[in-house]
């Protein structure tokens, strides 16, 4: 059964310079126990989508214009505020990108973990503290450090505290927004391993937001590639990594310096992401696409199924679909 299903989600922000079309008709679905990677560059609308799921879009200036967010078949957009509050941090929780700013600097970390437990489980203070200490142990922070403040911890440990808060109530759905971007590579490896292990232990589904295709390859079974507020390609990890179809996805792979091969020059994607206040009429990737045609400039391509469960938003996906990625 689908745990989360997003249908045609559209989110806009009203600014002085015009309407920012941040999310433009996103469809996503997530099965129970699955890990979905949502990949895209800065400004693609990944975080806005995630905040939309939790109804955390600041209104105004932001607004969910249309679409459905079905969690266990119920539309979150139609829920009452107190119902959403019961879900947030309890059944659906979020790991934020920057652990330095996600924690309250004047409250000891133990209290910050216990707070979410007390709020959702209506248990006694002692019971909450007991669970809090168990949580700290799970993320491998010594129990005696529960009374310390965030500034006394290193970046990696702070992110582990944030993970402990997110997982304290055994959520059904975990949204991790660039959980390791602020961390060093050896610490990143530790944190990713921990998230994976805990995810399996408590059978949580995960929506992992990242710009790093390497992390996705290690962690996710399903992948969705986002560009200018749209999903341009989605499918299993094999579909995306070995049967890449969309020119943007291909461009992303070509831009990454390879660790295994020697290349003289990289192949960047020319140009820039379109201005979200002024999106092109046709395909939003059209202005940067090497295969662009008149059809692309005039008509926006629909997301179409080009293989079982493999979707691509392109007028000409089949021609460019490579059986195995060229040169690898």
């Amino acid at each position: 059964m689908e745990l989360l299903q997003i249908k045609d989600l559209r989110i806009q922000f009203n600014t002085d310079t015009g309407i920012v079309h941040a999310v433009n008709g996103v469809d996503l679905s997530l099965q129970e126990g699955e890990c979905l990677g949502l990949v895209g560059e800065t400004g693609a609308g990944k975080t806005t989508t995630a905040l939309g799921i939790l109804d955390l879009i600041q209104t105004p200036p932001g607004k969910i214009v249309s679409g459905e967010i079905l969690y266990k078949g119920r539309n979150i957009r139609e829920m009452k505020p107190h119902e959403i509050r019961d879900l947030r941090g309890n059944e659906i929780s979020m790991i934020f990108q920057d652990p330095m700013s996600a924690l309250n600097p004047v409250i000891p970390v133990g209290h910050q973990i216990a707070e979410v437990i007390r709020l959702h489980q209506k248990c006694s203070k002692n019971e909450a503290d007991r669970q809090m200490l168990a949580m700290l142990e799970k993320v491998r922070i010594p129990a005696e450090r529960a009374d310390e403040y965030p500034h006394q911890f290193s970046g990696g440990m702070k992110q582990r505290v944030v993970i402990a808060i997110a997982l304290a109530c055994n959520p059904k759905l975990l949204i991790a927004d660039e959980p390791t971007t602020a961390l060093d590579v050896t610490i990143q490896a530790q944190v990713l391993k921990m998230i994976r292990e805990l995810q399996q232990e408590i059978h949580t589904s995960m929506l992992l937001i990242t710009h790093d295709l390497g992390i996705v390859a290690q962690t996710c079974e399903k992948v969705a590639i986002m560009y200018a507020g749209e999903i341009v390609e989605s499918g299993t990890a094999e579909d995306i990594f070995d049967r890449t179809a969309h020119p943007y996805t291909k461009g992303l792979f070509a831009s990454i310096p390879s660790i295994d091969r020697k290349m003289r020059r990289l192949t960047p994607i020319e140009g820039l992401m379109p201005d979200p206040t002024d999106l092109p009429a046709g395909c939003s990737f059209g202005p940067r696409c090497p295969y662009v045609s008149d059809l692309c400039r005039e008509h926006k391509p629909e997301l179409q199924e080009i293989g079982a469960g493999h979707f691509c938003r392109c007028h000409f996906p089949s021609q460019k679909r490579s059986p195995e990625k060229e040169g690898q």
Partner: peptide, 25 residues
Amino acid sequence: KGLLSAIPVPSLHVQRNEILLEGEI
């Protein structure tokens, strides 16, 4: 060795013997 094995590689076909460095700097 630990640093090199911690690099996330964007491919499903690379097998690395992962050396996880515990602790922090």
